[in-house]
Simulated assay, not measured.
Amino acid sequence: MTLPDTFRSLMRDAHPDFYDTRLLPYVPPQQDYCRETRKTLDGSLNLSKIVGTLEPEYAGKSWKEILDAPDCTQRIRDMQENPNAYMDFSAKPMSFFSPDSGITWYVAHNTRDTVITRALYAVTAHGDYLYGVSCEIRIPDYPLSHKLMELTLDGRCPQWLDTRATVRKQDFSWETTLWTHRFQMNGKPLSRADILALPKKKTRLPRRPFWRGLFR
């Protein structure tokens, strides 16, 4: 039995929970404003939080389907010559993207090696954490998005003007980009703070007729 067959046989016997789960395509949210993004080339993530992929050729397929595909066979054979091949991530650059502050993750690049790595971790009880990989975390501005939705429902819809980026180096590995959004309403420019400070529109209750309650 070849190494790829042995490896897949071990996966079938172990049958981890994620084996039949399909990787979702990433669908960018509509009118969802970002507060900041953080990037690093030396990040870590929990493999169990991966829910999808940005690579369309793998989106919609299960971990098992990708692992059983012919293009994974040679990759698995490589482990016979170099058992530590999937412990050295510098040789196989993988990158990941989180749209929601690290709650869920998508594979941004190299879905195939990500699938093999997670399968290898599963059959060797290595754990779920992957280290030394490229990560990008998007932090949505939920208060701003919710306020704009509230204003739209009230019939007051601020017009977006522009978005400006300010890049900062947090330390030697992380780079943070702060996003500043500007709007206008009725010709008046509004900052994020101005938008959040707008009071909620008062709802007038219909007046009861004066004669209601006189007759029972």
Rank of each mutant, 00 (worst) to 15 (best):
V51E: 05
G102I: 02
A85D: 10
Y86A: 10
S145H: 10
V123F: 10
D68A: 09
A165V: 15
W63I: 02
A193W: 00
K39D: 12
D154N: 07
G155H: 01
S95Q: 09
F96M: 04
T177W: 05
Y106E: 08
R75L: 12
T73R: 11
S145L: 08
G213D: 06
D42N: 14
G132Q: 12
F89V: 04
F183G: 01
A14Q: 14
G102Y: 05
D20H: 13
Y86H: 13
W63Y: 11
L130W: 07
T152F: 14
R168H: 07
A125E: 13
C72Q: 14
G132H: 09
L67F: 01
F210A: 09
R164H: 07
R168W: 06
A69I: 04
T111P: 04
P140C: 15
C34S: 10
P158C: 00
L67W: 00
E136H: 13
L205T: 02
P206W: 01
T73C: 05
L54M: 07
F210W: 07
I103K: 15
T21I: 09
A193G: 03
P143C: 01
T114A: 11
D42T: 12
I76P: 00
E150H: 14
F97E: 03
I50E: 01
D162F: 02
V133D: 07
G60W: 09
G155D: 01
R138C: 13
T73A: 13
E36R: 10
G43L: 06
L144W: 03
D162G: 01
R168Q: 08
Q170P: 04
L196G: 07
F7Q: 02
A108Q: 12
K49R: 13
E136Q: 15
S90Y: 06
L130A: 13
P28D: 06
A108M: 13
E55N: 04
P16C: 09
F7R: 04
W160E: 10
T203L: 00
L196A: 04
K147E: 03
C157L: 14
K64C: 12
K188E: 02
W160M: 14
A14M: 13
T21D: 15
E65A: 13
T2A: 12
P206C: 06
